[in-house]
């Protein structure tokens, strides 16, 4: 049986007035298994967000294929999205809904069984400690609470695959730790998680396997131990720099 996420030769070409044709993602390949956090580690503009936006069917690949739970991102985008929870700094919440209404809405729109929605909403409110604020409008909540509501709405329909695109950008240390903790818990529940970041410590702490992405290419991928072994470096930051410099020299 194939892995929940299979990416083969996936590419995305953009056309930019100033810069011309840009290969934002260039024939990348990876797989991601159950109960695994797969990290895409790269600098800004490396192609992380474009890759994740193709997996979440917001963008259409220029070539190559990607399947999530067996659904092709081009041929069956709705099947993909039904099994997917997508979280990024750009996916905002509806400010005029309450926390409870937000979770309820996203559970229903993602076709979670109607008769179990209430139970699921109550569970998520309890799980993220939102009880006191459940009926307050999102616009009135603190940024930490909003973060929790965001994660709750991402998993409202209990999807098998979760994509977290730089989830801790703009958060203070404590809120960032909360998010990391939530991701760990979700992995322990058996979710397949793709996580992108440019923060090395986050990748070290959270990811079971890491892919180093640069200029649209995956330069290396494997477990942290494997990467250490192949580069003879201990710190992920050094490993990352070594691969990127080697790629720049090759170019």
């Amino acid at each position: 049986m194939s892995a929940p996420v299979v990416v083969q030769n996936l590419s995305k070409i953009f056309f930019d007035e100033g810069r011309g044709q840009i290969r934002a993602v260039d024939a990348i390949n990876f797989e991601c298994g159950e109960a695994e956090v797969f990290g895409l580690l790269g600098a800004n503009g490396a192609g992380k967000t474009t890759t994740l936006r193709m997996l979440s069917t917001i963008l259409v690949p220029s070539s190559g294929t990607a399947t999530l739970m067996g659904h092709d991102v081009v041929k069956n985008p709705e099947g993909v999205r039904k099994n997917l929870g997508f979280y990024s700094a750009t996916t905002a919440l509806y400010p005029r809904l309450t926390a409870r209404e937000t979770i309820d809405f996203f559970a229903r729109i993602n076709q979670y069984p109607a008769e179990r929605v209430k139970e699921r909403v109550d569970y998520l409110i309890e799980r993220f400690g939102l009880g006191k604020y459940a009926d307050a409008r999102v616009e009135k909540l603190s940024s930490g609470m909003k973060q929790k509501v965001s994660i709750a709405r991402t998993i409202a329909h209990n999807p098998s695959i979760l994509i977290f695109d730089e989830p801790t950008v703009g958060l203070d240390v404590l809120n960032a730790l909360d998010v990391q903790e939530s991701i760990s818990e979700l992995r322990n529940e058996g979710k397949t998680i793709i996580f992108s970041t440019h923060i090395m410590s986050e990748a070290e702490r959270l990811c079971d396997r890491i892919a180093i992405i640069h200029g649209g290419h995956i330069l290396a991928s494997g477990t942290l131990a494997g990467l250490r072994e192949s580069t003879d470096q201990h710190y992920l930051e050094d490993i990352f720099v070594q691969y990127v410099k080697a790629a720049q020299v090759a170019v």
């Binding site: 979440s56 069917t57 917001i58 709705e78 999205r81 039904k82 997917l84 997508f86 990024s88 750009t90 996916t91 905002a92 919440l93 509806y94 400010p95 996203f106 729109i109 993602n110 076709q111 709405r153 329909h157």
Partner: peptide
Amino acid sequence: ERGTLETLLTTAAG
């Protein structure tokens, strides 16, 4: 403008 369209487009709704 608010960023909620992208949130909506990543749901299972066609």
